[in-house]
Design a protein around this nucleic acid. Sequence first.
DNA 1: CCGGATAGCGAAAACGCTTAACAAAGCTTC
DNA 2: GAAGCTTTGTTAAGCGTTTTCGCTATCCGG
Lengths: 346, 346
Amino acid sequence: MSDRPTIYAVAQRCGVSTTTVSRVLHDESFGSERTRQLVLRVAAELGWVPNGAAQGLASRKAGVVGLLFPDLGLPAAAEEESPLYVDQVIRGAERTAASMGQAVLIAAVKASGGKSLAYSVAGKVDGLVIMSRSLSDKDIATISQTVPVVLLANKPGSRSYDNVSVDNRTGVRELTSHLISHHSYASLGFVAGPHGSPDSAERFRGFCEALGTAGLPVPEAPTAEGNFTEIGGRKAMHRLIEQAELPRAIVFGNDEMAIGALSVLHDSSLRVPEDVAITGFDDIAVARHLHPPLTTVRQPMRELGEQAVSLLFARIQDPRSSRKSVYLSTELVVRASCGCETSGTN
Amino acid sequence: MSDRPTIYAVAQRCGVSTTTVSRVLHDESFGSERTRQLVLRVAAELGWVPNGAAQGLASRKAGVVGLLFPDLGLPAAAEEESPLYVDQVIRGAERTAASMGQAVLIAAVKASGGKSLAYSVAGKVDGLVIMSRSLSDKDIATISQTVPVVLLANKPGSRSYDNVSVDNRTGVRELTSHLISHHSYASLGFVAGPHGSPDSAERFRGFCEALGTAGLPVPEAPTAEGNFTEIGGRKAMHRLIEQAELPRAIVFGNDEMAIGALSVLHDSSLRVPEDVAITGFDDIAVARHLHPPLTTVRQPMRELGEQAVSLLFARIQDPRSSRKSVYLSTELVVRASCGCETSGTN
DNA sequence: CCGGATAGCGAAAACGCTTAACAAAGCTTC
DNA sequence: GAAGCTTTGTTAAGCGTTTTCGCTATCCGG
């Protein structure tokens, strides 16, 4: 612990200078074969492990990239509620970072007071991917003066940084068009996520575009709102059922709400897709296991993380290159809930 | 970037020494109100962010804990195959680390060649949680001389380190006893995970214990083997169907295999649980959405991560305290697939 | 043999921060 | 008004690497 061997110890044991040790450890081709072997052997014998802090300080690079993601401060009750897609993003980030030999420092930043952790992380990494909506523009600005920053997801003010986001709109547009042209559903509903969510807004826009293109009446506002949660989906579905006429097909802003709706419909003895077609968005893992399997739009979450880190490395290498924006496209995943297949593997 | 303000810059601007700045930044109660405000204001104005490397080097603590998990080197095809429970562990670790104001450094260590990354990570953290089976005992030993280490899951040689694991055996024993006593199933099968997996072995042992207690014949070996994957589950199920008599109930070593089996049974027009009861292990997110919902055993993955980090902090605080072992218990989750409820919410 | 490459290595100065060890000044308290 | 605190601040010594110079041999062509 406190008696960890340093390269100085290694150097002494070998009868060489610390410079030589450091060089041998980094340059594949340095020094005589004899010295190399000696140093390497002694280092291993002593159990020497590089002191990251010292390396970082001297070389001005941490060998670590950071990932800040939102912490919804789940009230313990909502255990699994936390946005599962974050995991995928983390994995993606980890993966491409690993391919560059870097590790990933992750931290959830809380809606309130996460600032100091965020700053602390910023000082420990070579670059930062920020997923958090909870970090103010000002904080992001300050941090970006310290290390390169890549923004994830459709943060409104993201235009001044490298950023990667998903083409929500086209995704829902394609989905909706499929519903209209393939199944000739004439009355469609849209259940939105929480008010003010840019993602939700974009998805609704895609929905409207498809309706417009098909010459159908374009609604002013979403048919209902469901907070992106399963419970929200249930409530929304209940409301829709109580209303005059049920749309022939309902486009949900995400899968979780669709799941809630599915269970309500089941309890109400309404058949999916015969009585009403249902679709989601995200293609979370459970989607294909639902009954009926859910037609949805796949978001490339893992790729989101991968791209973000790629962008970050590019920026680190060339800090003054022009700002880049990556726009990932989604994939329509057709399953039974929209009226297509009635069974099948996928 | 290269012109990041240092505390020296802050100190100069304030007309005080770097010591004073450092102290103000750390001691809540240091200096006159006037000096404090001045320093804080100037630091903010300059956009000062602590240099983690320098802090770490000077204070001998990184403010970061590491988490090493296995990278199965998924061949791109098996996208989602990667052990999803890892995500839960990461989240758990992140959560309790955050409560101590620390961030988490994550890295997947590959079966081959992950060594150097592992060592590099070890040098950057105050402590390390190791989930990886791919790190040799020797490497773990070396690393543990550098930083405190906590082992996760039932690694065979884990007895010499702090470690936290899940009581697989009791979990399956309870499950199996439920099957026997509650449903009076007389013929039971067990589908194991990959040969050599300690987890799988423990689960099988639990299965046998329950049989023994009930006075039923105890098998020598698992009825079939399925590699812990959905595909493996399918294959195993096929094999079982082809054999002479199908057990009345089948205990699968994990949920994924049970999922595979479920789809095979569906295709074979065998009813669950009427013709054959099915259970899993893990309680992954999809389990409750299957048809029928899967009776299984919940593994407290998130808690696993939490406990591991707690242990780590304890060890960091008192490096010479006695070795601790945490054994987490599982929870039986009864759903329809074992023949209990036929519908329901949960 | 001599001038200049070049290979092999070392001395020492950073890197930005923390943390003793002190010193000076302002308070009590008797 | 001296002795002893407490408060406020300073000086300087690291922390373990990397990295910039620069030195000494050795080698080679001419």
